[in-house]
Simulated scan of single mutants.
Amino acid sequence: MTKTLIVTNDFPPRPGGIQAFVHGLASRRPPGSVAVYAPAWKGAAAFDAEQPFPVVRHPGSLMLPEPGVLRRAADVLRAERCDSVVFGAAAPLGLLAPALRRRGAGRLVGITHGHEAGWASLPVARTVLGRIGDGLDVLTYLGEYTRSRMARALSPAAAARMARLAPGVDEKAFRPGAGGADVRTRHGLSDRPVVVCVSRLVPRKGQDALIHAWPRVLESVPDAALLLVGGGPYRADLERLAESRGVERSVVFTGSVPWEELPAHYDAGDVFAMPCRTRRRGLDVEGLGIVYLEASATGLPVVAGDSGGAPDAVLDGETGLVVPGRSVPRLAAALTGLLGDPDRARRMGERGRAWVEREWRWDVQAARFGSLLGE
């Protein structure tokens, strides 16, 4: 059995989707087959003590591909007797791959997310991404969008070594009946049609588009409510927008919620929507959108924006609808159509649940990960 060292800036207890992805892969490796080297973070000691694998913390909160990080990574590689290295985010730490190979790593894998696709469009970053690809045995991609964008920056040999690896969904936690009734009661939404969005509050995710669309939704479904789950720097702007549009009484902000409460918050909705859109000329783009799959696992129809790889997480017309993230009329029409046709919404939710069970479960992704490690 191989033993793998995961070198990553993105790891709990720091919150985030990449962190959950990398931790999900690590925690599903066989006992004794993984170790992690990651930055220090508040609460790390208590978190690390609960893990079934060793976690070695870097002294600072950020690791860059420089000699000190290389030295510590090589020390962990040797001390833990690892024979492969996985970079939790290939850019930029994947630049360490050739040096770690010389220090004993037999197989090197770099995981990519969304930002590497942005790197592929910038001259200097594009060159760096090409160097990273040449130093790895495998560079992963989330879906066809990110694969095609990154492949342009890679040598033909590196592009040929790309393989798909996406986050998994815990279909046992994210399921219909996961506690949504309690969340509805808490926010006074018990008998109202609810559109829920679970995401960090930042401009790319499109919560502002939902609020702009909300007056049109209320024209067709007067008692509808919009439940915005998550925290972030955009909250104050969104609250002002809701007030200016006159819909503040039907928009609920929950703030950040603990991970263990997320399934219940999805389950509180009748429709899930996150109309993400690409910003900054393609540099700020959705890599995949695991929230759509978590919503599908919970039995909800989804309305997704068309940014980057988001459409890869939706079977358009079957598990949900993909709309232009900047089109308020198209967004409003999708929401009112699903809220006004519960049977159609239910069928989409059922198909989404079946799709997740078939292709997106964590055990499926964990098996793919093992194959990339040469098992």
Rank of each mutant, 00 (worst) to 15 (best):
K3V: 07
G16T: 08
G16S: 13
G17Y: 07
I18L: 14
P30H: 12
P31G: 14
G32D: 01
V36N: 06
V36Y: 05
A38L: 04
A40S: 07
K42T: 14
G43S: 01
A46P: 00
F47H: 14
P54G: 12
P54Y: 12
R72F: 06
R72L: 14
D75K: 15
L77S: 10
C82I: 07
C82G: 10
S84T: 07
F87A: 15
G88L: 01
A90F: 05
P92I: 10
G94P: 04
L96T: 02
L96H: 03
H115E: 10
A117D: 12
A120N: 09
A125M: 14
Y141T: 10
E144W: 01
Y145T: 11
R147W: 13
R147K: 15
S148A: 15
R149S: 10
A158M: 11
R164A: 06
G168N: 04
V169A: 05
V169R: 03
E171D: 13
A173E: 09
R175N: 11
P176D: 11
V183R: 02
R184F: 00
R186G: 04
G206W: 01
H212Q: 04
W214L: 05
P215L: 09
V221G: 04
P222C: 09
P222M: 03
L227P: 11
L241W: 02
E243H: 13
G246D: 05
S256F: 02
P258V: 06
P263W: 06
P263M: 13
P275W: 04
R277T: 11
D284H: 07
D284L: 08
I290Q: 04
V291N: 12
D306T: 12
P311R: 14
V314E: 11
G317T: 03
V323W: 00
R330S: 14
L331F: 01
A333L: 06
M348S: 03
W355S: 14
R358A: 15
E359R: 08
D363I: 09
V364K: 09
V364T: 14
F369E: 06
G370K: 00
G370S: 13
